[in-house]
Design a protein around this nucleic acid. Structure first.
Lengths: 213, 213, 213, 213
DNA sequence: TATGAATGAGCATTCATTCAT
DNA sequence: AATGAATGAATGCTCATTCAT
């Protein structure tokens, strides 16, 4: 994973040079080949360390993978998503369409950048209840209240239809998740007009969510 | 995968008793543990046959898996989906809301029934371009024209907004796919009020897709 | 092995069509890949029969191979060699150089034709004492007396030096065997001027074996 | 292969104790049973190591065999042959008969000592072009010039007949190779009077190669 | 901290052979 | 005579993990 939009140093504090190398190499190979498709030997080779060192530092392969997955979710995916969301929502002039537009485009860029790794995260999540719960908890505690409050505010203004915010959020998330999966995981290398597609999707969503007079 | 709603005999014609046993055992274990989590030894044991027989009949593990995945997509998932869709669309009184309602509910039941296996189909698809293309082709050739025509008919009647049918279809599919993934793959055993959720989702979609006077 | 210079029917008498097919296919594949490099499955496939049939007819793989090796030695290599030798020796005007010339050239042609198979025979012989003894016995009983008598006759005439005929025979055979091995087994596809080489070899041998006045 | 006449340490430098054990065990079993007749399990058992270690050190069975074969040819067979040949040829009083006598006897002793292993080297060579070329190259570059020069020297003195040295060398080698094969590979445990046989063979060769006045 | 030799269980796959039909 | 399904032992090889240094 590249580090254009966040600083790595934070998460690597306390790691030796070699430990970092292991972490980074493992991240790349896991992303490309999945958990069971990756061997510790390959990781060690890529990292330029002795295979035994992996086990000194990360106990075993599963834990290495989980540490990477958790750290990716905890330190990168969620904070960035939350941070950006907070920023977008904090603007006074932000309405639903504006929010969805920025959110979808930004998150899609993020997915574009990290897609191989995200694929692994999703797959791992579908087997790993702990990672699931962690992500859900983070979302529920940090993302949900923020967005929910935004929706409620606009509902009070009579702009958004009167549905339970959680339902609206789930609808928006579902659309985005489904779109991303069709877009990236299934149709990996398609020519695809994202701008138009997202605009249409948002049009329909806004059409469905915004109150008429 | 159970066989409540279709007949197995067709696909198993020409298979020995033991061959069928291998197929079925493999299906179950693959569904539970994924491709690389499953060993041929385990399959053989469950099927009650010598391990070598697997290779006599299916050449190798990958081909066994692919045969199962393809047959599931080709003989079960797609035909049933297409058949049901055709039936729903053929009714004269069918409008968008009615269609979405039946479609979402039925397909969700289908997913409920076969969820473990579908999970590995999706995962496999994300790595296997051949399976991907096969599914895309089937969809494009068999599902798309049918639904597209339905949409166009209703657009002519002035009921559905004037967007390219392919965009409308993708929007609907994305919502359903995203919902299903949140519902089953991530939140595997949640208490979850499907009826209400689906109803809301359809409300929003219809709101967004149906023309106002 | 082709059958330009002998008739197959003799050895195949009593064999069914499929049995013959197995025999021929096995011969070819053994010749190409050696004993343990050849699988009964491959033989069956090439012969166009069920694998089980091989074992009905030839009991097991080892016996199939041995039958082929023995039959090749017994029915083809030795009879032909003996027949040709007898014919060459029977001519009144035959002297040592003439004999060596015809013998070396003819046997070399034979080797050229059957080289892959002969390779197997030699390899098998080095492990299979029974085949060894069989070949030695055949040679001692049928080839040796004939050639020995020819040598003795010429020694009496004062043409060939007075060494035990068995030693002379062994010298000649060694030269030919060594030459053939260098020629075919090691230098498989070399450009190589056989006529000149053989002529030189015979020159030296005759030089060494023919008495001077 | 025993190590009476050369020092092992040189070739085993950098090898672990266990690695050496694998090498030695493999050498013995390969020599006895040939390449495909030998299993890695058997090697590991004899060497007293875990089977996996073989693959850590030698990558795979084929490479293990080749390393042994190459090392045998490169470090043992050729150097010894070349060394002895050089020594014999360097003596001023050396004539053809003297050279052949020492060479044949010494090389025959060498073959006697290592015959099981040499058998598989020859057999492997007939399938393995790389090993073939390696041996040929070594011979052409190191043995041939030395002997060729010796022959030319004696030809100038008018002692050896005027044939292309390469032909003379091939004749001598063929005789020796053919003799060795008849002697050891085919007639494995015969009573056999080597001294007399070799003397006769050399007599005939010298007779054929030495010029008369 | 770091190495790399060593382990041993596990894996997919092959193969000669048997047997019911 | 012929088939081909079925066997089960064996094989080469991989891999996560341990341990002495």
């Amino acid at each position: 994973m590249d580090n254009n939009d966040y600083s790595d140093e934070l998460y690597f504090s306390g790691m030796t040079e070699k430990q970092k190398k292991i972490y980074e190499s493992a991240l790349e190979i896991f992303a490309e080949k999945g958990f069971s498709g990756t061997s510790t030997g390959e990781i060690a080779k890529k990292a330029g360390v002795a295979e035994g060192l992996i086990f000194k530092h990360f106990k075993n392969k599963k834990l290495l993978f989980q540490k990477i997955a958790f750290m990716a979710v905890e330190k990168t995916i969620l904070p960035l998503t939350i941070l950006r969301t907070k920023k977008i929502l904090s603007e006074n002039y932000t309405d639903l369409r504006f929010f969805l537009n920025l959110f979808f485009n930004e998150r899609l860029d993020f997915i574009k950048k990290h897609r191989t790794f995200l694929r692994i995260i999703i797959q791992e999540m579908s087997f790993d209840a702990e990672l699931q719960n962690f992500a859900k908890k983070q979302f529920t505690e940090k993302m949900f209240p923020m967005v929910s409050e935004f929706i409620k505010r606009h509902q009070k203004k009579g702009v958004i239809i009167d549905l339970d915010p959680s339902i609206i959020i789930r609808m928006v998330m579902s659309s985005f998740l489904g779109y991303s999966i069709l877009r990236f995981i299934l149709s990996s290398d398609e020519e695809w007009d994202d701008d138009m597609q997202i605009k249409s999707m948002i049009d329909i969503l806004c059409n469905g969510l915004i109150k008429r007079k």
